[in-house]
C-alpha cells in the first residue's frame, strides 16, 4: 500500500517528525569557495570556441512551460541536431542550460545545483518573458522575477512561449557569440559568486537537498 495508513506522522530515526526538519543554511552541497579566476586569453582561442559552438549539449531539464517547444525543436520538424545540438541527460554531460520560462523557487534551487554541476564553459539561455521581468506571474509568491540576479544569462529569446524558429535563432546567436568568445556568463558567475549567492540566499530559505541513502 503506497500511502501510510498508520495515521501517525512518521518520525525520523533522529526522532524529529518527518517534514519538519529545521531549514539548513547553505549546506556543503553548494559551491562555497570562489574558484581561481580564469585567464582571459583562454577565450581568444578561436579553435576551441569553434568546437564548443558546433556541438552544444542542452541539459534535459524543462524548468518552465517553454520546454514544450523543445519537443518540436529536437524532433524531425525543426531538428536542432543538424546544428550539432544534442540533449545532455545529466548536468555533467551538458553545456547549455535552458531556463524555459517561469522559475519557481523550488526549481531555482535544483537549477542552481544543476548549473554548478555543469563543467565550464557553460551557458544559460533564457526563454520567454518570465525570465526578464516576471512575465504573467509577476505577482506570484513562488516564482522569481529577474533571472539575471540568480544565474548569468547569455541569450534571451523572447516570446510567450518562443517558437521553435525563434529558439533556432537564439541558438544561432549563442553559437556566434561563443565563436566570438563573448559568451562569458560562466566567468562572470565565478568572479562574483558572492553577489549571486547573496541573491539566491535572499530567496531560497531551505537549502536542504535530498541525501542519497543506501
Amino acid at each position: 500500500m503506497g500511502v501510510e495508513e498508520k495515521g501517525k506522522v512518521p518520525l525520523l530515526p533522529s526522532g524529529v517528525p518527518v517534514g519538519s526538519k529545521p531549514h539548513a543554511t547553505d549546506s556543503t552541497l553548494f559551491a562555497q569557495g570562489r574558484p581561481k579566476p580564469l585567464s582571459l586569453d583562454e577565450s581568444v582561442a578561436f579553435i576551441k570556441n569553434w568546437f564548443r559552438a558546433q556541438s552544444l549539449n542542452v541539459m534535459a531539464y524543462g524548468t518552465g512551460c517553454g520546454s514544450i517547444e523543445l519537443g518540436p525543436l529536437g524532433t524531425s520538424r525543426f531538428d536542432m541536431e543538424r546544428f550539432g545540438i544534442t540533449g545532455g541527460p545529466t548536468p555533467r554531460q551538458s553545456s547549455v542550460l535552458i531556463i524555459s520560462g517561469y522559475l519557481s523557487v523550488k526549481t531555482l534551487k535544483r537549477v542552481i545545483r544543476s548549473y554548478e554541476q555543469m563543467p565550464n564553459p557553460r551557458w544559460v539561455v533564457a526563454l520567454g518573458s518570465c525570465t526578464i521581468n516576471g512575465g504573467m506571474y509577476w505577482d506570484s509568491y513562488s516564482t522569481i522575477k529577474i533571472l539575471d540576479q540568480y544565474l548569468p544569462v547569455d541569450v534571451y529569446v523572447n516570446g510567450c512561449m518562443p517558437r521553435p524558429e525563434a529558439l533556432i535563432a537564439g541558438f544561432k546567436d549563442l553559437m556566434d557569440m561563443i565563436k566570438r568568445g563573448e559568451a562569458n556568463g560562466y566567468i562572470e558567475y565565478q568572479n562574483n559568486l558572492d553577489w549571486y549567492r547573496a541573491n539566491q540566499r535572499k530567496v531560497i530559505k531551505d537549502w536542504n537537498l535530498p541525501e542519497y541513502s543506501w
Partner: peptide
C-alpha cells in the same frame, strides 16, 4: 513577427 533574440535584457 515572432523572433526577438538579444543578450541584454533591458532592450525588451
Amino acid at each position: 513577427e515572432y523572433t526577438w533574440v538579444d543578450k541584454d535584457p533591458e532592450v525588451f
